[in-house]
Design a protein around this nucleic acid. Structure first.
Length: 400
DNA sequence: CCTCCACAGGAACTGATGGCGT
DNA sequence: ACGCCATCAGTTCCTGTGGAGG
């Protein structure tokens, strides 16, 4: 009888790798020469020129859908600028944050702070007033005469947080230079949403929106070109079939022109091909990779849900109908089964719409006339996937 | 045309957690 | 020691709504 681990190890050893360099397939990998997005590179450079020429802070707003290369271009340009001024008496510090990675303004500011070397003692991870955090950031910049460029990705998300909490840190950020005696602060905002400016403080728009650059979506042809460029460097010669590239571009680029997804896909397909000891990546591998990635994403989302959200999902599976009321009473039963206190109706409704956002269920408001109106929910994934994801949860073991 | 059901979903609040300045 | 400021999950209270049936 053969040992499964040994088998795998044997296969890995004897199997030849067709991926030479996987780093190149990371979307944000910066090669010395990016061929595409030439005009955008020029535009970004133009907008940031004041920083280089007059040592004057400059603000910039960049739009484009996910995977259109916004961040890549900005990083490339900023790096080049940084290199130029490295040895001058005007060195530039680059700081990058994604608003979506942080759930609150506080966390976002702390993440910015960490990157200009404020440690836990100088800037604790919680407990401070927002204005105090902000003061410490500025103090650091001032004291060390830093010339900082804050790149804030998905700034529309931050704008929403600002709106919700009433804290005008975007305004504060754009006006920070007035408070700085030394050093400077430039702001590069990146947004997926062209309309996000509408609910922004006009004073912020006037300073942040001085320069605006829009990244158009890639079409399938452009995606193919990007794929070919990278595959050339990342894979062994002739190890990726044309069909695989086409399928990849169609899957990822068809709707939104998402180059990041295309690259993730070809990498995953390459790994699958290697594992199958194939010396070529075929369109079959790409399809398989696409499916696997989808499943993996759903599974890890499900696993990360807190207990009550899991219970809500099981309730949807179990309830006879799919209206909010039916789901809620089914959920209450499940709570009894596992011996947990049930949450309120309101909270469960909230959870349902959160799950809806993650794409695992879809809800539709249906009016039943005199029987009131309700939201009907439909599962978008197989019940097998759910059972599979929850089977390791001790509390749920009995009811899955 | 009006009523009325069964919810939808906004807003304000609570209580725990954690660190600040005084 | 105490009040202050933020965040987070959850609760309480609330107003809004589409259309079948009267």
């Amino acid at each position: 009888m053969s040992d499964p681990i040994d088998d795998l190890l044997d296969a890995a050893e004897s199997g030849k790798s067709i991926i030479k360099n996987r780093d190149i397939l990371h979307f944000t990998y910066i090669p010395e020469k990016i061929q595409h997005r030439k005009t955008e590179q020029e535009q970004v450079t133009q907008a940031l020129l004041p920083i280089l020429k007059q040592h004057r802070p400059s603000n910039l707003l960049v739009y484009g859908e996910p995977g259109t290369g916004k961040t890549l271009v900005i990083r490339t340009v900023l790096r080049k600028i940084q290199k130029r001024v490295e040895k001058s008496n005007f060195p530039i510090k680059l700081v990058y944050t994604n608003s979506k990675d942080e759930t609150a303004i506080y966390g976002l500011l702390v993440s910015l702070g960490r990157q200009i070397d404020l440690n836990e003692a100088e800037l604790p991870g919680n407990g401070l007033a927002i204005s105090e955090v902000f003061n410490r950031l500025l103090k650091k910049i001032d004291n060390e005469k830093l010339n900082v460029i804050f790149v804030i990705d998905e700034i529309d998300y931050l704008a929403k947080l600002v709106q919700k909490t009433g804290k005008d840190i975007l305004y504060q950020l754009t006006r920070a230079n007035e408070r700085l005696k030394q050093g400077s602060l430039s702001l590069v905002g990146v947004s997926n949403d062209l309309t996000f400016k509408e609910n922004l403080d006009p004073r912020v728009i006037s300073s942040l929106g001085e320069e605006e650059i829009v990244f158009r979506n890639y079409n399938v042809e452009q995606i193919k070109k990007i794929l070919e460029e990278r595959i050339n460097d990342a894979f062994l010669e002739n190890s990726v079939e044309i069909g695989a590239i086409n399928r990849c571009a169609a899957l990822a680029g068809g709707e939104h022109g998402d180059a990041r997804r295309a690259l993730d896909l070809i990498l995953k397909a390459g790994e699958i091909a290697e594992r199958q000891q194939s010396d070529k990546v075929t369109d079959q591998h790409v399809s398989e990779a696409s499916q696997k990635m989808e499943e993996q994403l759903v599974k890890s989302t499900l696993e990360a849900f807190p207990l009550h959200k899991k219970l809500v999902i099981l309730a949807i599976m179990r309830s006879k109908g799919s209206s909010t009321g039916e789901i809620y009473s089914s959920y209450k039963n499940l709570c009894k089964l596992v011996g947990r206190d049930e949450l309120t109706n309101r909270r469960v409704k909230q959870m349902l719409s959160e799950i809806d956002v993650s794409g695992i269920i879809t809800g539709k408001i249906i009016s039943q006339g005199s029987h009131g109106s309700t939201k009907k929910f439909t599962l978008e994934i197989a019940t097998e996937t759910i059972k599979n994801a929850f089977k390791d949860d001790l509390t749920l073991q009995d009811i899955v």
